[in-house]
Amino acid sequence: MDITFEHVSYIYQENSPFAHKALDDLSFHIPSGSFVAVIGHTGSGKSTLIQHLNGLVRPTHGKVSIGDFQLAKGMKPKNIKELRSKVGIVFQYPEHQLFEETVAKDIAFGPANFGVSEREIQRRIKEIIPMVGLSEELLTRSPFDLSGGQMRRVAIAGVLAVKPEILVLDEPTAGLDPRGQKDIMDMFYTLHQKQHLTTVMVTHSMEDAAKYADHILIMNKGKKYMEGAPKDILIQEEALNAVHLDVPEIIAFMHHFEKKFGVELPFENQTPKQLAKQIQQLIGGRLRNE
């Protein structure tokens, strides 16, 4: 499903001394099937933005379209539940939403609310449990007895079990160990490709944005600051530094390398391995001869 924002503004606690403009005249378009990274300093409005995607909040001004669904001020969409079954949101620290007696029941909670049959739910649980890196014997345990990382996976499984078409991730790996972060990101990426999802991911990791996203949206103080393909956005060191962001390590390295050796080394989403090979071709022979 396509996602379109047209001049969207959102004001918290409008008409009070605490009124706060969290989104300011935001417009963008995300074609179906994209993997978008939303990046920005804390408080730049990322979480507010994604809450528009399933109608948790409605724009104070402007219009949001998700596929055929429209959200605007004062509009009361009747099919909001249908929208929510198609847009799955993994919130920041999703483990806080666990509440059932057993892991299995908690995963089943979402699909059951959306009217998925019991048999189908069981089938989905069997399918998802290994995907998120859990084992089946956990299914009968209480989610509150698990480790933080396992709880996170259960919560993610609960969202995936609904089989959304748009998957929204709000800093999905915050607070996990590095290995867990990579596992979960790889899982989301595989899922994105296999099930042709549209994925919107809020992240602070420029590395992850470079590695997984095909489109990047940079937010600053509620406004769109930059938007485009990773290879065009992530290299703009000065512009990024101006909003307290850094370029990915690999690009920082390439910039230093270009300066030191006076050669052009354009960024094209290389992996470290590809980059090493490129460098080898550039100057490898020279280095070996010395």
Partner: peptide, 16 residues
């Protein structure tokens, strides 16, 4: 804040 956050998370999972 917590109430707001959790009710949004559960609303996303289809709670009305």
């Amino acid at each position: 804040q917590e109430t707001d956050k959790i009710s949004k998370a559960q609303a996303s999972r289809g709670v009305d």
